[in-house]
């Protein structure tokens, strides 16, 4: 059953800070290469078109979803589905960290990063507005959802996608090394691996993790992209540090078997969760909406 097996590519790349032209070219090249390798989908890292720490370059690199540069990638999705990320500017001039999913020459889904880390070495909320929802969409690969980097560090986000019947989560990221000490079991790479394996197993989903590489002012983005299956095994893993295109086959029959063997999503008590959260909201435990 050819339909059950889909080839997914990840472009683990090092965006050039602030240089949309150069990054666009790289995107086009990777899309062609993935297409030539028979992939049905290619996933790019968070802010692959702009680089991560855009700071005051935000004003220069922001693009509307309708801009010719963005459209040039959407046009290439006639051959292969593409998930890519850039700084989006809306008509009322808000700036978002956005991921677009394009298929058959059309934009099928737009996700605006909900959780903008603004602590420690991160400063995103200074420049960007937060998105306000997690939605899914359908493609030939099944029901999909996207979590941009920090989105995935909030338990509720993959949960909401899974409850909307997602079977494949795409996670574009710009995640830096934060601890190279031996005892740090939970350096950022190890943390991501544990997190994604656990989500995949708890939610019975495939997860595509596309992390960038390269350096920005000494900050090292480590890569380590890969695809983890519903049984927690890694189907493919990129190395750390180098740009590369990796491809693996996702087999939905594994999702089917896993969800039958361990039916955690089936047994989830959504009403219970919703009513308890509702009760907490009514008690005023979480302050005003929007928080």
């Amino acid at each position: 059953m050819a339909f059950d097996i889909q080839r997914v590519a990840i472009a683990q790349m090092a965006p050039k800070l602030g240089d949309i032209g150069a990054n666009l070219e790289r995107h086009h090249e990777y899309i062609r290469e993935a297409s030539a390798q028979g992939a049905h989908l290619i996933v790019f890292p968070e802010l692959g078109l702009t680089g991560y720490q855009t700071q005051d370059l935000t004003l220069e690199v922001a693009r509307s979803a309708a801009s010719p540069e963005i459209q040039s990638i959407v046009d290439m999705s006639k051959e292969i589905d593409v998930l890519f990320s850039f700084v989006e500017e809306t008509d009322d001039h808000r700036f978002y960290v956005t991921a677009l999913y394009a298929s058959k020459g059309e934009v099928v889904h737009k996700h605006r990063k909900v959780y903008l880390p603004t602590y420690g070495m991160f400063d995103e909320r200074r420049y960007f507005a937060p998105g306000d929802r997690f939605d899914v969409w359908k493609s030939s690969l099944g029901t999909l959802g996207v979590l941009i980097c920090e989105d995935a560090w909030h338990l509720s986000a993959p949960y909401l996608l899974a409850m909307q019947k997602a079977t494949l989560l795409l996670v574009p990221a710009s995640s830096p090394w934060r601890n190279t000490m031996a005892a740090a079991e939970f350096g950022s790479h190890a943390f991501w691996r544990h997190l994604l394996q656990m989500y995949a197993q708890l939610l019975g989903v495939h997860i595509v993790f596309a992390n960038r590489v390269g350096y920005e002012d000494g900050v090292h983005f480590y890569g380590g992209s890969g695809i983890v299956a519903p049984n927690g095994s890694w189907l493919v893993e990129a190395g750390t540090g180098e740009s590369e295109l990796i491809v693996a086959e996702i087999d939905r029959r594994l999702t089917r078997r896993t969800r039958y063997t361990t039916p955690l999503v089936r047994d989830e008590r959504v009403h219970l969760v919703a009513s308890q959260l509702q009760a907490l909201l009514q008690r005023g435990d979480f302050g005003a909406p929007g928080h």
Partner: peptide, 20 residues
């Protein structure tokens, strides 16, 4: 706690020098 993963640290620092 301060003990480095030597190979990893070295490769990050070499990459840092080349890239920057």
């Amino acid at each position: 706690a301060l003990r480095l993963r030597e190979e990893l640290t070295t490769s990050v620092l070499e990459g840092f020098l080349r890239d920057e």
